[in-house]
Design a protein around this nucleic acid. Structure first.
Lengths: 225, 225
DNA sequence: ATCCCTTTGTGAACCGATGCACAAAGTAGC
DNA sequence: GCTACTTTGTGCATCGGTTCACAAAGGGAT
């Protein structure tokens, strides 16, 4: 079993996986502009990475380039899509239909290729029954039933921090193993479950740290010693 | 110059900086519950990290713990806040007041300690003049003036993808060096500028990748060879 | 068919981050 | 003061990821 017919390794580095969507987006843009073939140099430029890194990333999927020529755009789009699992359709449920949940439901670009918002769920009787982005908001009591009925496999948590862990536990109990968490809490889950976290406040704090450094560091104003 | 009085090293590892906000949040929770002192083990548990990592992270700020006892919660909150630059007040402008921008403006928890939404800016005459979260939405033509007048130092981009680079260039031209980008594009900026990216679609794709792996991998359905 | 040019795929050095494991430093009890 | 116990701070081995640099592979021209 050498790198002739089955070069695709089961273990793709996590860092590579995180960049594949970036390459895919750049490639989609190129495909729309009618570009047929692209070099690692150009694609790397479009994705904002180093070309050696790009080549190594792609080499983890297989040998899809042609030396002296580059990569076929359409073919590469297909291969990356398949590797990421975007050739199938993922049903996503958004739990928590506050400002953020609403924005996510309406954000077209977000749920694009491969993903479909299949359910909106909230606890507030005030919003249950509303129609948002063409979907009926259902009550949290229906959570388990809705997840099962619609074949939801990815849950987006946009609840208040206090509610997140409880909702998390419930969706895991019905078999969901992929969660995108917007609530500012550390979820505790079994390690069979994947949680990705998006935390706006943390991103701002990291920016503030660097901004402060540029301005002279934390000692400047205080001069503690 | 040893580690007695000036232990604070100018170079805090990036990975550490990214975790400090997490520790800070856990500590705030503890402070509210009246906890006076915490061990690395307990704090690490609350933040979801390994205790050795936590201790090493904190050691980059200085020697703020007491052996045999732990860390003083209040004191550590102060030290981390100071290191992150949260003892000062950062004026944030949100550009793009669509669904997402609106959600961000209203999201109280997001702009919490140390941050203040100082301006909302949009190009659509339909929304310019509206009041959202107590703020008047201003026209994009006023961008430079508003940024200067309000002392904005961090800009949040919540525009459509097509507009993001242009807005980015403009705010950089007025001196902004910290940008939080929600638009699904790779911004090109001088390397004096910090850009952090939040991309919902990428997060979903990473989840899909792992979800597919759990289900048997991309070969299962296709069996290409 | 041969030579030259382009671009891929990857071996190897390097770099930063992680986690173990333990000495150093402190508290508490006698 | 001395001993036993707790918990920090860190040296060290390790690991994953990045980057360089180049040999291998292909295309095109003569």
């Amino acid at each position: 079993m050498k790198s002739t017919s089955q070069p695709r390794d089961r273990g793709i580095p996590e860092a590579t996986v995180a960049r594949l969507p970036l390459y895919l987006r750049a490639l989609h843009g190129m495909a729309e502009r009618g570009v047929a073939t692209v070099s690692s140099e150009d694609l790397a430029g479009a994705a904002g990475v180093n070309s050696a890194k790009l080549r190594k990333d792609l080499s983890h999927l297989g040998s899809y380039g042609t030396r002296g020529v580059g990569y076929d755009v359409e073919y590469l789009v297909y291969q990356i899509s398949r590797e990421l699992g975007l050739t199938q359709d993922w049903a996503v449920a958004i739990v928590g239909v506050g400002n953020l949940g609403r924005a996510l439901a309406n954000y077209g670009g977000f749920v694009s290729r491969g993903f479909r918002v299949a359910a909106l769920i909230d606890a507030d009787p005030e919003v249950v029954g509303d129609t948002i982005a063409g979907l009926n908001v259902e009550h949290i009591d229906e959570l388990e039933a809705v997840v099962k009925r619609r074949g939801v496999s990815i849950v987006v948590l946009a609840t208040p921090a206090e509610a997140a862990q409880a909702v998390c536990d419930r969706v895991i109990a019905v078999g969901v193993t992929s969660i995108l968490n917007f609530a500012p809490v550390v979820l505790s889950v079994p390690d069979t479950v994947d949680v990705r976290k998006v935390d706006l406040s943390i991103e701002l704090q990291i920016l503030a740290f660097h901004e402060q450094r540029k301005a002279g560091g934390p000692l400047m104003a205080v001069d503690s010693q």
